[in-house]
Every structure is written in C-alpha cells, then in structure tokens.
C-alpha cells in the first residue's frame, strides 16, 4: 500500500511541479533591461573603490597598510611615505580591480574612512591593465559616506594642529610647570 501511496504522491508532486512552471510561463518577466534602464543601487552596495578626502581637502589615506593586509585577494598595494610636514601618505596606491572581489573588507578595516566602496560597478574594458587603478584614479574630491570625519582630529598626533588642541585632548603637559 505504501508503495502505491508513495507512487501517487510522487506523481502528484511531479504534476504539481509541472503546473507551477506552466503557471509562471504566463507571467511577465521581472528582469530589468540594463543598460536601457539602470536600477538605482543602494549607497552601501559594493563596487568600485575610491579614496576620499578630509573635510579640509587633504587625502585621508595614511597608508597604514590595513586594507592591504586584510584584502583576501591581495589586490591592494601601496607605499607609505612621509610628507614634508610629517603627514603620512601613500606615495603610490594601487588597486588591481582585475583581482578585487568587492568584499568590502578594506573599507571595514580603514581607520580613516579613506577607502570606500561605491555603487559604480561599470569598469569593464578590453585591457586588463586598465583595471589596475593608481592613486590618481582612485582619489575623489569629497568625503564619501562621511564628510565630517577627520582622522587627525582624533588621532592624538600633531598634524592638523598642535598637540592638545584636538577632540578630547588635554593641553600638553608642561614639563617645567610650577604647578604641582
């Protein structure tokens, strides 16, 4: 008896499946017609990477190597250097988008909010070397998702102002102070 029941159930299932597909056949497709229609992407969708700037227009990247360290496909490389005023910056900064998997770990690791993923994903081209982006290609003139943040205002090193003048800092200790 069980076998027949199973058989019956099996056949019904097959038929149900057939019915379902047949039903969908009559539906209107849901596909969007790209590129005629470009669906607006959420701001947090992950595609091409940019390097943003501070509110005061300086490049945010301090070449701390955290993004390159965290990158699972090793597509980020850079060379840090010291600017004349002591600011740390990437002498060159390279992302190989031919390797990038747009996982966004670099953005998460970035302590200065410099590296950010944007919704722009249209980068395909015929020359693979064109997918190797240098700093000039990556730098943008805005702060990206957060226009306010300035790393050096919180870092505790003297860069955008003297020591003790930044957020949540006390005046520098006066070594020779007579006060107890």
């Amino acid at each position: 008896m069980g076998t027949i029941k199973n058989l019956a159930e099996g056949i019904t299932a097959l038929l149900k499946g057939l019915a379902t597909t047949l039903k969908i056949l009559s539906r209107k497709p849901v596909t969007e017609q790209y590129p005629e229609y470009r669906r607006p992407l959420p701001a947090r969708s992950r595609a091409v990477i940019v390097l943003t700037r501070d509110p005061d227009g300086e490049e945010r990247c301090v070449a701390c190597y955290l993004c390159s360290a965290v990158c699972p496909v090793s597509c980020i490389s850079m060379q840090s250097a010291e600017r004349e005023d002591g600011r740390r910056y990437p002498r060159w900064f390279r992302i190989n988008f031919a390797r990038c998997i747009y996982c966004g770990l670099c953005e998460e690791a970035c302590p200065t909010l410099a590296i950010q993923l944007t919704p722009n994903f249209e980068t395909s081209g015929r020359d693979i070397l064109k997918l190797v982006y240098e700093k000039e290609d990556l730098l943008v003139n805005h702060g990206g998702k957060n226009n306010e943040y300035n790393f050096y205002k919180r870092a505790g090193v003297a860069m955008v102002g003297d020591k003790g003048t930044q957020i949540n800092e006390d005046k520098p200790v006066d070594l020779k102070s007579n006060l107890p």
Binding site: T21, K28, P29, Q33
Partner: peptide, 8 residues
C-alpha cells in the same frame, strides 16, 4: 526557460 524563470 527564460519565461518559465520569469526572465526574458
């Protein structure tokens, strides 16, 4: 197949 999968 496309239509059955709600595609074009």
């Amino acid at each position: 197949l496309g239509r059955i999968q709600a595609r074009y």
